[in-house]
Amino acid sequence: MAGAEVTWKNGKFGTTQRRDRWWVESALVFCGFTAFIIYATWAAFQGKFYTHGPYLSPFYSPEIFGDSPHAIFGPKPGWIPDWIPFSPALLILWAPGLFRFTCYYYRGAYYKSHWSDPPACAVGEPRNKYLGENSFPLIMQNVHRYLMYIAIAFLFLLAWDVWKAMWFTDATGTHFGIGLGTIILAVNVCLLSSYALGCHSLRHIVGGYLDSISEHPVRHKAYECVSCLNASHKKWAWCSLFSVAFTDIYVRLCSMGIWSDWRIF
């Protein structure tokens, strides 16, 4: 295509005639994603301070093996070698992490912010070579729908954590109650659900693949509901990212005794 010969083409990293602060969005996304990845990795490797009373950090849920009362199968099994770093979060966090990594919104965002491909719309790129998602490794992004299935299963587990977070044990027994942590866990599940249930792959699977969706009224309704959430997928992606990190911080600081959980009733 003769477009390559056009003399006014950009061609250098960051070259553009744009007058607006085009770099601000990419810079904010870079800072936001990087901060989350660093914090989540640090928190996952800690292996402690992830429960407080009935609360369990979402980074550690479900706790398959672990030392807390939330552990499904009890303590770390002996067949896991000691030289392998162990934390209950490391067993499960790959699933929601990869779900976000392969999410269509996040892909478009981090290709721009972390890989400058492009740094912003109509702005010059640092590399001439481009493979896109047409070949390895990015062709693996197509696994997204399977990670979505796992992410939806996690929503049920996190909702179960909210239910458990309503039962407080003291010297007189176990009583129903609601603390600030209960509300934070519940809001977190709502935000995570709004994000995961607006997934583009889910939108396709519930009905988007049909050309005559009106012949399937239940699928049609489901498609409309997912489409409604999907329209704000970016917003839910960010809100849920912040909420899941904040929920972990809340449980962690309560567990460390730095914050005290406010028991509403």
């Binding site: 269509y104 919104y105 892909r107 478009g108 290709y111 721009k112 491909d117 492009p118 719309c121 109509a122 481009y130 896109g132 998602e133 047409n134 070949s135 990015l138 062709i139």
Partner: peptide, 15 residues
């Protein structure tokens, strides 16, 4: 038609 080349920057939608 190279649909795999699209990396979902959403620039097309924005303009």
């Amino acid at each position: 038609h190279g649909i795999g080349y699209c990396n979902i920057t959403t620039c097309c939608r924005q303009v």
